[in-house]
Amino acid sequence: MSPANGNYEAVEQRIRELARAALEEGRVDYFIGWTTGYNESEVIPGFVRSADKVDDLVWNPLAAYNLTTFLKRKMPDPPQAKIGVAVKGCDSRTLVSLLQENLVDRERLYVVGVPCEGIVNRRAVSKVFANEVVKIEVAGDQINVTNQDGETKQLAREDYLLDHCRSCNYPNPRYFDDLAGEAVPEPEDQTPMWREIEEFEALPEKEKDRLMAEAFEKCIRCYACINACPVCYCWDNCVCRSRQPKLVGQKVNAQENLMFQMVHMFHVAGRCPSCGNCDRACPVEIPLYLLHRKMNKELKEMLDFEPGIDLEQKPVFQTFDVNDPFGQH
């Protein structure tokens, strides 16, 4: 990914202008963007209901949250609300996945596309100090991290981007009504790269098994991953909470936890562009993102398919091709 232009302020202004106009003209009941959390190191989803509050919205490389989650069935309040939403490149791909299946009403949606130059891996950055990180600031190719004692460390931006931002081929939104700012250059070669999973793939099966058990031993089954996932939409009717049929047991142990995660994984197969929202939502830091990356790699090899790219395409598991190049035996 190219070095950042640092054009965040101009984009931020544009998001605010577009949100203000939409709210003032009554095209939306509320606008979902990003805002600052409990301190300056956290950027969180922000809901703006009136034009005088749009200045709460921010845009900077900490705005990781995929806001299309809040468009999922049963999330909007009130349910018939007209919603404005800001989407980055990867967020727009989940939106495309939702639109492909008619799971959001396009008529009641106003989409502001935000060209993105990469999001900072806040989790990794916050680990450079043992005590609390209170401020993360990106200036050009550098990240300045400040802790509660006022000490500042400088990190190279390149080393602390989210994995999927480093190999991102679609930094510009695939679907939007208005674009906030200029589109950023996209890589010419859009062949996906899978370097973050190659190391794991090369391990022997026994070792993978051990690592999986170790990772899922931690899981506390809070269901943050599935609820944060924009394309996991069953909401209260998820099969992993069902007793009849009982696919996943109530006990919390590595086996059941992994089974639960498989419910998520196979449900979002073909619709998940690995935006990483599940991974970032996980309170115990299970690297869920890698599983979804692996799945996307296999889909690419199997069907030459990438989720959330083409609005007219049918989700791959809801269709078939008699000439599928596998399973002839």
Partner: peptide, 10 residues
């Protein structure tokens, strides 16, 4: 206030 709640149990 509940708007950004995703109804998980974290």
């Amino acid at each position: 206030l509940h708007m950004r709640c995703i109804s998980c149990g974290t």
